[in-house]
């Protein structure tokens, strides 16, 4: 299996150094993304999903820092690449859609210009060629009247349209991997579906893999091939979508998925009782310990559980399953 990976993240840790102390936001997370795959990452607010995606693009700013781990992309470790080389990968091979597209577009620049300059940077096109390509990419993502809209500023677009512009911009160079951080949050259901369709279409036509970060388990079920469940800076379970929804193993995943009567019904993750534990001084052992109904005293608080493969491709990180 490992011969056919697009992205291989191993034991990635990212800390934030704040006045209260060190915040261990990502604690040795590992996951793999295959070519042409939609890989989902779900978890409560504050579990570190955005930090994970920013880490892949090396966009963590002080006081944050990636402290260890490896991120192999097409065989090279992104964390070891010099800044210059890495810039060539960003936007061309890996790109990212942000949680709030409105704020992720430069408010003082016409959107045509914003897209065109990506073509100029990565493909060395001339001004007019780049602008044509920009119009083309807007059309590709179904922005009506693309020729006119290139002259508009971001604030003139509705949220859904702005999200499309963002996708058009980030898909400009047909990247191998698109990281989408909650691309549909705040959109109405119809628009949400349209945006997801656009992304799936890009996957089917261009073969772009997608790392889809979401709150919405319904969206995850409909869109993803495989899913990782994140809790307080740990990835606690990874499996194919059907497997995970059919037979969740980790108590957190269970709580999460059992709270959904039907897969297509929307339930927000935050409906689970209790809080994500403080990432500042996280419990030494399992980080789910305060909320877990099945704590094994004497074990769970002592050590962090190992990630184990229960079935082919079904990983779980929980003491309940150790030694099985």
């Amino acid at each position: 299996m490992s011969e056919n990976l697009l992205l291989n993240v191993t034991k990635l840790s990212t800390n934030f150094y704040l006045y209260e102390g060190v915040m261990r936001v990502l604690d040795e997370i590992s996951f793999q993304i295959r070519p042409r795959e939609v890989f989902g990452l779900v978890g409560e607010s504050g579990s570190g999903k955005t930090v994970a995606s920013l880490s892949i693009l090396r966009l963590i700013l002080p006081p944050g820092r990636i402290i260890s781990g490896e991120i192999f992309f097409e065989g090279t470790d992104l964390l070891k690449l010099p800044q210059k080389e890495f810039s060539k990968i960003r936007g061309k091979k890996i790109s990212m859609i942000f949680q709030q597209s409105r704020t992720a577009l430069n408010p003082f620049m016409k959107i045509g210009e914003q897209i065109a300059r990506i073509y100029r940077t990565h493909e060395g096109l001339s001004k007019s060629e780049a602008m044509e390509k920009a119009i083309e990419s807007l059309k590709r993502f179904r922005i009506p009247e693309a020729e006119k809209r290139v002259e508009s500023y971001p604030h003139e677009f509705s949220l859904g349209m702005a999200q499309r512009v963002m996708i058009a911009m980030m898909m400009a160079c047909n990247p191998k991997l698109l990281i989408a951080d909650e691309p549909t949050t705040g959109l109405d259901v119809t628009t949400q579906a349209q945006i997801l369709d656009l992304m799936k279409e890009a996957r089917d036509k261009i073969g772009t893999s997608i790392l889809l970060i979401t709150h919405d388990l319904g969206v995850a079920a409909q869109t993803c091939d495989r899913l990782a469940v994140m809790h307080a800076g740990h990835i606690v379970e990874i499996a194919d979508v059907e497997v995970l929804y059919g037979r969740p193993l980790h108590p957190y995943a269970k709580a999460l998925l059992n709270s959904i009567p039907r897969v297509d019904k929307k339930v927000r993750i935050s409906d689970i009782p209790g809080f994500v534990p403080s990432l500042l001084n996280p419990p030494k052992g399992c980080r789910f310990i305060n909320r877990c109904p099945k704590v094994i005293l004497g074990v769970c608080e002592k050590a962090k559980p190992e990630m184990i493969e229960i079935d082919r491709g079904h990983f779980v990180m929980c003491h309940l399953y150790e030694g099985k």
Binding site: L54, L57, L59, L61, S87, K88, I89, R90, G91, K92, S95, M96, F98, Q100, T103, A104, L105, N106, P107, F108, M109, R117, I118, T121, H122, M166, M169, M170, A172
Partner: peptide, 26 residues
């Protein structure tokens, strides 16, 4: 420099020089 759109510009692989220019203009 801390705005999302600067992060997005970096994510899109624009050269640092361009990013500084954006920041100055805004």
């Amino acid at each position: 420099l801390e705005k999302d759109y600067i992060k997005a510009a970096r994510a899109a692989g624009l050269p640092e020089r361009q990013i500084y220019k954006d920041a100055l203009k805004n």
